[in-house]
Amino acid sequence: MDFKDYYARLGLEKSATPDEIKRAYRKLARKYHPDVSKEPDAEAQFKEVAEAYEVLKDAERRAAYDTVGTQHGGQQDFRPPPGWNSGFEFSGNAGDGPDLDRSDFFEALFGRAAAGMRGAHRPAHAGGDDHHAKVTIDLMDSCRGGRRTISLQLPVRDAQGNLQLQSRQLDVNIPKGIRDGQHLRLKGMGGPGHGTGPAGDLYLEIHFAPHKLFRVDGRDIYIDLPVAPWEAALGASVTVPAPDGNVQLAVPAGSPSGRNLRLRGKGLPGTPPGDFYAVLSIALPPAGDDAAQAAYRALASSFEGFNPRAALEMTP
């Protein structure tokens, strides 16, 4: 495993004072915290910064880390010397840092227990931790509801104590009408209980995969509906795909581009259900051959007084 230079990660010298460490961490945490950051890899960056701070802010851990760093002497590949930490007894509150996975390097030095959940002492028979995960479903899963198999990646320790990603599949009933960004609770599917305590719950944050036809805003569903110029001008009845299947839609005569046609209650199901909107866009037929060009010229001569840019004209 790679040796982690925690000082470098916080941009500090080894002689940094506790105040300097705190200042450096806070500055980087504000820059990379996933809740406030716009950096593309904010979460990974924040994890490293938080881990460095968790070690360096604690005098005991920092002393242990410095000892290892001196013995290690700058090679890239790192193995903790056997029994290296027998001289230290860590009294600190083990899990008071951010609730994040720690690197193998951290765990090799400070143990799995130190990488646990934040919070103080756990009673012997406490309930298991609640877990959180984000999952992506199709819009149609919400429109129709019903059973879906969802795959989650779960970090699990193997017999050698190495962290591995295990694929966990859950059969979940997707409630009809669930919206993008809402959460599902699966009772008892979180972390195992301690002693006789009950298992924790699993929370799934639901997101919709982008759909090739539909856009979703809350409960409402939108589709872009191209119409021919004469359909927009004269009115027409057109067939439109909706989540429940095709619907006939009346395009009123004189519809401008961008007009929203609403089908009430045809959005996501629920009480109340959302609406379905077709957003008109006027599609021009190509003026590819002589006949088509003649048709456009005839149109132009029929509308000699028409100025599409009337609204742009400045008053003298």
């Binding site: 059973r147 966990r168 599949q169 859950l170 059969d171 979940v172 809402q182 699966l186 924790g200």
Partner: peptide, 26 residues
């Protein structure tokens, strides 16, 4: 891989749940 079965009943947190203080803490 394993499928936990038979199948899990899921409730929408935003519309179907309320939390007590300890539940929200957990």
């Amino acid at each position: 891989n394993f499928v936990e079965g038979p199948f899990t009943h899921a409730v929408i947190v935003e519309t179907d749940l309320q939390f007590s203080l300890p539940e929200l803490g957990r």
